[in-house]
């Protein structure tokens, strides 16, 4: 480490002096550093506990949480029930869906080909 150049002898002695001792860490600074460490550790432990909780939950609970949890799923169920109810017993100002369904069924009897003409043609042949 030391240079051989004699001009640097005093400098090397000074640098040796500086190397010999690390500064003492003031007690207040050490306490602040350790308090920071404890706070970060507490944060890390909290995160790891939350991660562990999410991993240990059953599959149905994880699916439930995908939909926003029990309250959101409850709302979805109520909306579905209301839709079915409106479908079966509609208010007076709405058309009856059952009647509309029957109309659609009867309209399916439309003869796309004029079968009478076709039969007459085949008989003539």
């Amino acid at each position: 480490m030391a240079d051989k150049d004699t001009d640097f002898t005093e400098l090397d002695a000074l640098l040796d002096l500086a190397r010999q001792k690390e500064p003492d860490l003031p007690a207040g600074l050490e306490q602040s550093i350790l308090a920071d460490a404890a706070a970060v550790q507490a944060e890390l432990q909290q995160h790891s506990r939350a991660d562990a909780r999410s991993v240990s939950r059953p599959w149905w609970a994880q699916v439930l949480s995908l939909f926003g949890g029990a309250p959101a799923l409850g709302g979805l169920g109520v909306a579905c029930a209301a839709g079915v109810w409106v479908g079966l017993a509609p208010p007076a100002f709405l058309p009856d869906p059952l009647q509309m369904f029957e109309q659609v069924q009867s309209s399916s009897d439309v003869d796309l080909f004029d079968t009478h003409d076709v039969v007459a043609f085949l008989v003539e042949e």
């Binding site: 690390e22 500064p23 860490l25 600074l29 050490e30 350790l34 460490a37």
Partner: peptide
Amino acid sequence: LTRRLAPRALG
């Protein structure tokens, strides 16, 4: 870690 590293950083 504080004992090992903090005095070095301070110095």
